[in-house]
Simulated assay, not measured.
Amino acid sequence: MPITLDTSLPPSLYPLAWLIGSWEGTGALSTADASTPDIRIEQQLSCTAGEDGTMQWRSTIHRIDAPAPLPPTSAFARDTETEPPAAAGSGERTLLHREDGIWTVGDLLPGQDREAAEAARPGTPGSFLSHRLEAHLSRRDEPAEEWAGEVRGPRVQLALASPDGEIAATRMFGYVSGRLMWLWEHRRPVPDGAAGETALTPYLSLEMHRV
């Protein structure tokens, strides 16, 4: 599905034109225990243009007492052939988290050829330019987080740095065939007495459609 550019948007938000709007969808929450099936989640997401040229982000995710969707919605679903089927569940909804924030598109990343991109056929890989991206996100009763990364065409990559400068979490968003796919990975706490740090592992993934 082609991306329609709303020319009423501030020019600073043109790189995020494909994300502006309201979305909802389902996905999977990864459990720390490999023997425990993934958990179904549902998200309502609103991305609106701010008068100051930033994008306002509001996300609400509920945990559902029900089996997680099958792939491709669950980007990290386990091998169902080797696991017993999950119980149907009660369908009870529990708020996982509500998040508000502001996204800011910055300057072009260095080393790009703007003239070549403008001359390329729209929608082709050569027509996309990479812009710096910052997201200030906050959830109730938790410190605000400063995510940084880039937007290139219909794709966003964000990373959250830990106090020591290491990557603590990542988020990847993509606009695919009219749907919004995204994956959130993080580092789980290191077990007591263990050395080093854990690797980035999937936390949640979702497949969303426009409302």
Score class of each variant (00 low, 15 high):
71 P>H: 03
134 E>N: 08
64 I>H: 13
11 P>L: 01
146 E>R: 13
22 S>Q: 15
159 A>C: 14
150 E>A: 13
75 A>V: 08
109 L>F: 10
39 I>F: 01
120 A>E: 11
140 R>F: 11
166 E>A: 15
162 S>K: 15
172 M>F: 14
36 T>R: 09
152 R>T: 14
99 E>D: 12
155 R>K: 12
140 R>Y: 08
9 L>M: 06
204 L>A: 12
164 D>N: 15
38 D>C: 07
78 R>G: 11
162 S>T: 15
115 E>D: 13
24 E>Y: 12
66 A>F: 08
201 T>A: 13
44 Q>T: 10
117 A>S: 08
81 E>K: 12
163 P>R: 14
81 E>P: 07
180 L>F: 07
175 Y>P: 03
35 S>T: 14
172 M>Q: 11
109 L>C: 02
47 C>Q: 08
159 A>W: 02
134 E>H: 05
159 A>Q: 08
87 A>N: 14
167 I>W: 11
6 D>G: 06
69 P>W: 09
34 A>P: 11
169 A>Y: 08
130 S>R: 03
140 R>L: 13
100 D>I: 05
128 F>S: 02
39 I>A: 03
112 Q>A: 03
126 G>L: 01
200 L>G: 09
121 R>K: 12
204 L>G: 00
58 R>H: 14
158 L>S: 10
8 S>T: 04
202 P>E: 02
115 E>C: 07
128 F>Y: 11
50 G>R: 05
94 T>R: 15
